[in-house]
Computed example of a mutant assay.
Amino acid sequence: MARRLRAGQHPAPEPIRATSMWRVDQIFLARHGQRIEVICSLVNDQGGLRNLNIVAPTSDPVKAVRHAARHVAGKGNVYGARQARLRWAREQLVTEQDELIRDRDLEDEFLDEFEETLAAVRDQMR
């Protein structure tokens, strides 16, 4: 039996379960002092949506993206990141036009590291 929610309450988010396979859909970067936060938006086949936030211990965007890719691919239930779009978060933008600009070089860095880590995880499981 489902619990009734009071006005203003939101249902608790479902955990990211191993029984549900996810893929990376979008990636957002935001600077926080000497670190970069990488927010990975994950989707699954049932229409679920989750965000994973990873704060990389670096101010270098390439290293931050690679750090996040290793973390996400190592979870074991994220199967892909192809066609994931990468943008800087809204707070980092100078103009509204910046919101539309994708960083394809960083997308490639993320995908390369994700695929390498995923292959290593699969090799360990064999």
Rank of each mutant, 00 (worst) to 15 (best):
M1N: 08
M1G: 14
R3C: 05
L5V: 01
G8I: 00
Q9P: 06
Q9K: 08
Q9R: 14
H10C: 07
P13R: 10
E14S: 09
P15S: 08
R17H: 09
A18V: 01
T19E: 15
S20R: 14
W22S: 00
R23V: 02
V24R: 00
V24H: 00
Q26M: 03
I27G: 00
F28C: 02
H32F: 12
H32I: 05
G33L: 09
G33F: 12
G33V: 03
G33C: 10
Q34C: 06
V38R: 05
I39C: 10
I39V: 09
L42T: 03
V43I: 09
N44P: 12
G47Y: 08
N53P: 08
I54M: 07
V55C: 12
V55M: 14
V55L: 11
P57K: 05
T58C: 13
T58I: 05
S59M: 08
D60V: 08
P61S: 04
V62T: 09
A64H: 07
H67K: 08
H67S: 07
H71R: 12
H71N: 11
H71S: 14
A73D: 00
G74Y: 05
N77E: 10
V78W: 08
Y79T: 04
G80Y: 08
G80N: 07
A81P: 06
Q83E: 15
R85F: 07
R85Y: 12
R87L: 10
R87N: 12
E91Y: 11
E91D: 14
L93R: 14
L93V: 06
T95C: 10
E96T: 09
E96N: 13
D103T: 04
R104G: 10
R104D: 05
D105E: 05
D105Q: 08
F110K: 02
L111M: 04
F114D: 02
T117K: 11
L118C: 03
V121C: 08
V121G: 01
D123T: 01
D123A: 06
R126F: 07
